[in-house]
């Protein structure tokens, strides 16, 4: 069938339909799918605050920025707006309080900043459109998912968190798991009556101590 003028217009409008999404993406200057380079710096610093590297790898080692960036153009498209509005609000707050970008602040200063953000105590003027404690919780959740989730989603590079927890990775399947040596070793006897005392205490967290 010959291509008609109407088909051509339909194709053009389909094409421009996808062009309309470009402003939501990072543009040509960024290596990221969604974030601009500047936004990425903020998110990287934020995630490293949530899971700092110590003797074990942290957020940057797990490539959490890649996880969040990837999900924001996938299942988390619905959170794009929150990030696009929330990150400038973080930056504006940091500029007003410290005259610096968030990622340039010292580690302790960042921590204090985020404690304020969680409580909703950053300058109100920048948080008219986004709830600061809500955005904090969202980024906290996403950072945790990126660190502990499966590497197939872009974070937890080389199963760094699994290594930290001493869990096998990828999952070991086979004869070695049919018999658990741990489960067969009896634990030392506990002092009699201790559990009962604690369990019966009303309204308290149940704590069972052993050995």
């Amino acid at each position: 069938m010959n291509s008609t003028r109407r088909d051509f217009i339909r194709q053009i409008s389909l094409a421009s339909g996808s062009i309309m999404f470009i402003p939501a993406c990072s543009g040509y200057g960024s290596v990221w799918r969604f974030f601009t380079e500047a936004e990425a710096k903020t998110v990287i610093a934020f995630a490293e605050q949530i899971i700092p590297a110590d003797k074990d790898p942290g957020a940057t080692d797990a490539n959490i920025i890649n996880f969040i960036d990837k999900q924001l153009v996938g299942p988390y498209t619905r959170f794009q707006e929150m990030y696009r509005k929330g990150i400038p609000a973080i930056e504006n707050s940091a500029q007003k309080l410290f005259q610096k970008a968030f990622h340039e602040l010292g580690f302790e200063v960042q921590t204090g900043f985020m404690v304020q953000m969680e409580k909703g105590e950053l300058p109100e003027e920048f948080w008219q459109e986004t709830n600061q404690s809500g955005f904090f919780r969202l980024m906290l959740d996403h950072a945790m998912q990126g660190f502990y989730g499966s590497p197939r989603h872009g974070g937890n590079t080389n199963y760094v968190s699994y290594k930290m927890m001493k869990l096998d990775y990828p999952h070991v399947m086979g004869q070695n798991r049919y018999v658990s040596k741990c489960a067969q070793q009896p634990l030392p006897a506990s002092p009699q009556g201790r559990e009962k005392e604690l369990i019966n205490a009303p309204g308290q967290t149940i704590e069972i101590y052993y050995s």
Binding site: D168, S180, C182, L187, I206, E207, I208, Y209, Y210, S211
Partner: peptide
Amino acid sequence: GLMKDEVYDDV
């Protein structure tokens, strides 16, 4: 509850 010893054996 929080235990004193490791109780997780990945079984």
